[in-house]
Amino acid sequence: MVLVLNDFSQAFSKAFQLIFHLDPALLEIIGLSLRVSMTAVLIASIIGLPLGAALALYKFYGRGLVVALLNAFMGLPPVVVGLVVYLMLSRSGPFGVLGLLFTPTAMIIAQVCLITPIIAALTRQTILDANVEYYEQLRALGAKASRMMKTLLWETRFSLLTGVFAGFGRAIAEVGAVLIVGGNINHATRVMTTAIALETRKGDIELALALGIILIAISLIVTSIVMSARHAAYQHHN
């Protein structure tokens, strides 16, 4: 117990040291983590928001199956996604010629696969709920289905942000997929989570914990920035 507490206090002082010295290697890792996960969230939102809204509003044959799959995919194991993307991008895979394996792009692709179902499923539920309130009114005003979809996405933008952030949280925190398709190559594909896994395996618990503390701090900062922006916008609109 004493030993663990000692580890934590040392890890905190190590974390502060790393931050205050603006350690260039650390900054590089943080930068790549943010770049990969934010790009993945952006792409997953571009796909997931309209997809979720369409699944809520359009009836088509097989919709139930798509929704069931989507909900199941919310809990996809990152290592499995990583493995599938790895097979797609490896030399002998269908997209091997693109030479993307072990690049940040491959990591972005894997994270997009992981979080698009989350964003789409949460969007679908949000739009379904809003539609109960809006459908009759929008229809009576003369809105057609495609316009209704756009309107509902905009009307629920504050709620949808929560889904987008659930996606970001999952992306920045996962290690399995980025490790497999990125390879944790120093100065190329090393991100916070893969660095933590590496330092733990090397036995440098102190550094690993310090990185963990910084990772949590970054998640908190990003989330609180967006939540306060959301709060300000919500106040303005309500």
Binding site: E133, Y134, E136, Q137, L138, A140, T151, E155, H237, N238
Partner: peptide, 9 residues
């Protein structure tokens, strides 16, 4: 309608 649904704008 009896109860209007206005847009958030």
């Amino acid at each position: 309608f009896q109860k209007p649904v206005l847009l958030r704008r």
